[in-house]
Amino acid sequence: MSHAITLSFRPAVVADVPAIVPLVESAYRGESGLRGWTTESHLLDGQRTDPPAVAAIIEAPDSMVLLAESNGALQACCQLERQERAGYFGMFAVVPTLQGAGIGKAVLAEAERFAREVWGCEAMRMTVIEQRDELIQWYERRGYRLTGEHEPFPYGQERFGIPRRDDLRFVVLSKLLTVAA
C-alpha cells in the first residue's frame, strides 16, 4: 500500500545550496538520474549546476528556488524567475527514486500558483531540450504548449554540461495562468 507524500513548500535560502545542488545533479546526470525518467545523461555529461549558480538564483531579485519538503527532507525543487508578466520555470528536480509519485505535478502546480498569485504573472514559460520528447509531452499534458520559439544550447560553456551531440537546442513552452475558479 503506497502512502501519498505530504509536501510543504518554501523559498530556498543560501544555507540550502548544499542540499539543492546534489538533488539537481542526481535528477539530471549520472547513475542516480538513470533511476528516474527525467535524466539528461544520454544528452549531456558534466555538471548541471554548481553552488555559485544556485546561490546566484536565490539571491537575485525577482528570482527564487522553490523547495518541496516532506518531514524536513528535500524532495524536489525548481527555479522561478519573474520576467515582466510571465514567470520562468527551470532547474526542476525531483529525487529520482520518487519520480512518478506525483511530486512533480505538485511542485509545478505550486510554482504556477506562486507566479500567478504572488507575482501577478499571466503566463509561465520554460525551455526544454528539444530532444527530450517524453518531458515535453509531460508538460503538454499539464497545459503547456510549444510556442515555436527556439533558443540555442550554450555550447562551449561546460558549467551547463558537456554535450554528447551537436544538435541540441531548446524549445520554449508556455502556459497561460488563469485565476483558479
Score class of each variant (00 low, 15 high):
I20L: 12
G156E: 10
Q75T: 07
A115G: 02
G90P: 04
V17T: 12
T147V: 02
T127N: 14
V14S: 10
P96K: 10
L177M: 14
G87D: 01
V95F: 00
D133Q: 09
D166V: 06
R35E: 09
E140H: 04
G90C: 06
L67Q: 00
T39Y: 00
V24G: 01
E130K: 15
P51H: 01
V179A: 12
A15S: 12
F160K: 00
E81D: 08
R29Q: 06
T127K: 13
F153N: 15
G30M: 11
L177R: 12
I129C: 04
E81I: 04
A55D: 00
V13F: 00
A111L: 09
V179D: 14
R159T: 15
L80Y: 02
L176A: 14
E134S: 09
I136P: 09
A4S: 11
L108H: 11
L67N: 01
R10I: 05
G30L: 12
L74N: 11
G72N: 11
L177Q: 14
R145M: 15
M64S: 08
V54Y: 00
D16M: 01
R145Q: 15
T49P: 05
F114R: 14
V107G: 09
V21T: 02
D167P: 08
R113A: 13
Q83T: 12
K175Y: 14
F9A: 10
C77Q: 04
